[in-house]
Design a protein around this nucleic acid. Structure first.
Length: 569
RNA sequence: UGCCGAGUCGUCUAACGGCAGGACAGCGGCCUUUGAAGCCGUAUGUGGAGGUUCGAGUCCUCCCUCGGCAGCCA
C-alpha cells in the first residue's frame, strides 16, 4: 500500500498547484487560521446537481481530504419558494456517489435562522440596518444604474428603536408579503451596486421544506451565506466568479458584526462544456416540458444522468482534475469528458459481444448441429481476469456495417472473396450473399470457415487484416439497446444562430432505440448498472431503472474511438 | 458609459524575472485477435504598442478584446 501511496504523493506534490491551493498553502504557512482548513459545498436545493457542480464538489471535498481538513455539505435553503426535499435527497445521493463524505458536517442555512435573526437585530442596534418600505419597483429606481449613483431611501434615517420594533413586527407576521424589507445601511453611492443598501431580509409567506411555517421573513443570500460560513468556521469559502462583486458585501457583514472568525471568499471559473447546457433553469425546462425523460435522463449533464448513462465516479473525478481550476472563463471540450470515461472503462470494464444491427451469416461448411465454446478474453487490459466461454454455431449474426457487397477503398471487413477473423473463433471467407429482390437489401451472407484456425489463428501463418465480432444465432437473445448522442447539436447551445432559440439546438438524433439487437447469452443475467464494452462498438451499461431480471436494457455510455469512420468520412 | 474580473497551442492548463511545458483534440507512424487500447513522433500559442532589465508570458504605462454586476434569486 505504502508504495502506491507514496508514489501518488510524490506525483501530487510535483503537480502544479492551482491558485486556490496556493492561497491555502500560504495561509497555512502564515498560520492565518492556525492549522485548520475547512471548506464547504453549498448547493441550493432547487434542482439536480450537474457536472459543473461536480467540479466544485471535487474542488471543495478534494481540498478537505488533501489538507486533512473538513468539508461540510450545507444546503443554502434561504428561499423556500424554490426549494424542495426531493432535491436535497438527490444532492446527498450524488455527492456520496461521487465518493465524498461530509461526516458530521451536514447543515442547512435554515439551521441558523434564529441566529441569523439575532445578528440582524445586532446590525440594527449598531445603526447598520434599517426597515425600508419602498416597493420593489421604487427600490429599483432608488438603486440608480450601473453608471449613476443611487438615492437614499426616505426610510434610511429611522431611529434604532423604530427599526427594531418594525423588524420584530415583520417577524411576527404583522405586515403583508413584500411590504417591508430590512436593508443594510452601506452606501448608495457605491460603484458596486451590491453595496447600495442591499436587502438582507424580505417578508415571504412560503412553506419552508424544513422550518415549515415558522418564519415569514427569510434572509437573503449574501447575508446568510457569510454568516453561515462564519458559524461553521469555514476557512476558505470557494465560489464561482459571478460572486466576485459580492465579496465586499460578504466582508462587510462579517466586519460590521465583528464576528470571531472571518472566512475568505475565493472565486473560480465555473465549468462550461461545449454542446452542453448547464443552466439549472434550462435543465429544469427540459425536464418539465418533456424534452428529456427526467433529471436522470442519460442525455442530461446531471450527475444522475451521467450515472445512468454509465459514467463512473472515478471518471468524473479524473475529469474534474484535468479541467483544472482558474479564474479564466473557459469552455471545455466534451471530448475530454468522453476521454475520461473511456480511459476508466477501458481499464476496468469487461468485454462482451453484441450485434446491434444484425445481418445473418451462414457458415456453409460448418456441421449442421455442431456447437463449440470459444475462449473470450474478459479484458485484455486485465489479463488476470482470464477468459470465459462463448458459444459458436453454424449461423451467426454480424454487424450489417461489417459486410459490403462492393467494398470501398481501404475496407477490410467482409466482402465477397475476402477472409476475416471471427473474433476468438475462426477465419471465415465470404463466398456469397443473398439479396431481397424488392428492396435490394442484403439478407444473408455465406461464408466458409477454416477449421484449422480455431481460436482465431491459422497454423499456416496466414494473416487477415480484419477481425469482426459475431454472436451465435441460436444462442443469442434479443434486447433493447439505446444509443445516446449529444443532446444538442450546436457547439454552444446558449448562443443559438440568428432567429433561433436554444431549444432549436436540440439534437433530434440524441436517442436511437434499437429493439432487435442480438446479444450473447452471458449478458442476459447481468444486473442493473452492469458496465461492459461491447467489442468494437463502445461502452454500455445495463440501465439502472428499466432493466428487469433476465431482460436487461442497455445504454450506450460512449462509443469507442473510430478511426475508420473518421478516415472514411 | 461606472465598478469588478480575465486574456498563453484548436480547447483547457503550467511557468512565481532565467530553455514556453503537460493534457485533450488533430496529424503521421509502429504494433495489434477490438479500424479499440498501447507505443513513438509531429505541427500549432504568450491580444497590441511602448518601457524597465543582461534577460519579460511574468514588472510598469497606454490601448484592444471578452465576461460579470442595476432580484425583495442563489
Amino acid at each position: 500500500m505504502s508504495d502506491e501511496l507514496e508514489n501518488k504523493n510524490i506525483s501530487e506534490s510535483a503537480a502544479p498547484r492551482d491558485f486556490i491551493r496556493q492561497i491555502i498553502d500560504e495561509d497555512l504557512r502564515t498560520e492565518k487560521n492556525g492549522t485548520k482548513v475547512v471548506t464547504r459545498f453549498p448547493p441550493e436545493p432547487n434542482g439536480y446537481l450537474h457536472i459543473g457542480h461536480a467540479k466544485s464538489i471535487c474542488l471543495n471535498f478534494g481540498i478537505g481530504i488533501e489538507y486533512a481538513g473538513k468539508t461540510n455539505l450545507r444546503f443554502d435553503d434561504t428561499n423556500p419558494s424554490k426549494e424542495e426535499t426531493e432535491y436535497v435527497d438527490s444532492i446527498m445521493e450524488d455527492v456520496r456517489w461521487l465518493g465524498f463524505d461530509w461526516g458530521t458536517g451536514l447543515f442547512y442555512a435554515s439551521d441558523y435562522f434564529d441566529k441569523l435573526y439575532e445578528f440582524a437585530e445586532a446590525l440594527i442596534l449598531k445603526g447598520k440596518a434599517f426597515v425600508c418600505e419602498l416597493s420593489s419597483e421604487e427600490m429599483r429606481q432608488y438603486r440608480g444604474t450601473l453608471t449613476e449613483p443611487g438615492k437614499e431611501s426616505p426610510y434610511r434615517g429611522r431611529g434604532i428603536d423604530e427599526n427594531l420594533d418594525l423588524f420584530r413586527r415583520m417577524k411576527t407576521g404583522e405586515f403583508p408579503d413584500g411590504s417591508k424589507t430590512l436593508r443594510a445601511k452601506i452606501d448608495m453611492n457605491s460603484p458596486n451596486i451590491n453595496l447600495r443598501d442591499p436587502v438582507i431580509y424580505r417578508i415571504m409567506r412560503a412553506h419552508h421544506h424544513r422550518t415549515g411555517d415558522n418564519w415569514c421573513i427569510y434572509p437573503m443570500y449574501d447575508y446568510a451565506h457569510a454568516l453561515s460560513d462564519m458559524l461553521e468556521g469555514i476557512t476558505h469559502s470557494i465560489c464561482t466568479l459571478e460572486f466576485e462583486d459580492h465579496r465586499p458585501l460578504y466582508d462587510w457583514v462579517l466586519d460590521t458584526l465583528e464576528t470571531p472568525c472571518h472566512p475568505q471568499q475565493i472565486e473560480f471559473a465555473r465549468l462550461n462544456l461545449n454542446y452542453t447546457i448547464m443552466s439549472k433553469r434550462k435543465l429544469n425546462e427540459l425536464v418539465t416540458k418533456g424534452y428529456v425523460n427526467g433529471w436522470d435522463d442519460p442525455r442530461m449533464p446531471t450527475i444522475a444522468g451521467l450515472r445512468r448513462r454509465g459514467y463512473t465516479p472515478e471518471a468524473i473525478r479524473n475529469f474534474a482534475e484535468r479541467v483544472g481550476v482558474a479564474k479564466r472563463e473557459s469552455i471545455i471540450d466534451v471530448a475530454l469528458l468522453e476521454f475520461s470515461i473511456r480511459e476508466d472503462l477501458n481499464k476496468h470494464a469487461e468485454r462482451a459481444t453484441a450485434v446491434i444491427n444484425p445481418l445473418k451469416v451462414v457458415i456453409t461448411n460448418y456441421p449442421e448441429d455442431q456447437e463449440e465454446f470459444m475462449d473470450f478474453t474478459i479484458n485484455p487490459e486485465e489479463p488476470e481476469k482470464g477468459s470465459r466461454k462463448v458459444p459458436f454455431s453454424k449461423e451467426i449474426y454480424i454487424e450489417r456495417e461489417d459486410f459490403m457487397e462492393e467494398p470501398v477503398k481501404g475496407y477490410f471487413r467482409l466482402f465477397p472473396g475476402n477472409e476475416v477473423r471471427l473474433r476468438w473463433a475462426y477465419f471465415a471467407k465470404c463466398t456469397g450473399f443473398k439479396k431481397d429482390e424488392v428492396t435490394g437489401d442484403v439478407t444473408e451472407v455465406y461464408c466458409e470457415y477454416d477449421p484449422a484456425s480455431k481460436g482465431g489463428n491459422s497454423p499456416d501463418g496466414r494473416k487477415v487484416k480484419g477481425t469482426i465480432h459475431w454472436v451465435s444465432a441460436k444462442h443469442a437473445f434479443d434486447a433493447e439497446v439505446r444509443l445516446y448522442d449529444r443532446l444538442f447539436d450546436h457547439v454552444d447551445p446558449n448562443r443559438p444562430d440568428e432567429g433561433k432559440d436554444w431549444l432549436d439546438n436540440l439534437n433530434p438524433n440524441s436517442l436511437t432505440v434499437l429493439s432487435n439487437c442480438k446479444l450473447e447469452p452471458y449478458l442476459k443475467e447481468v444486473g442493473p448498472g452492469f458496465k461492459c464494452q461491447f467489442e468494437r462498438l463502445g461502452y454500455f451499461c445495463a440501465d439502472i431503472k428499466e432493466s428487469t431480471p433476465g431482460k436487461p436494457v442497455f445504454n450506450r455510455t460512449v462509443t469507442l474511438r473510430d478511426n475508420w469512420a473518421k478516415t472514411n468520412k
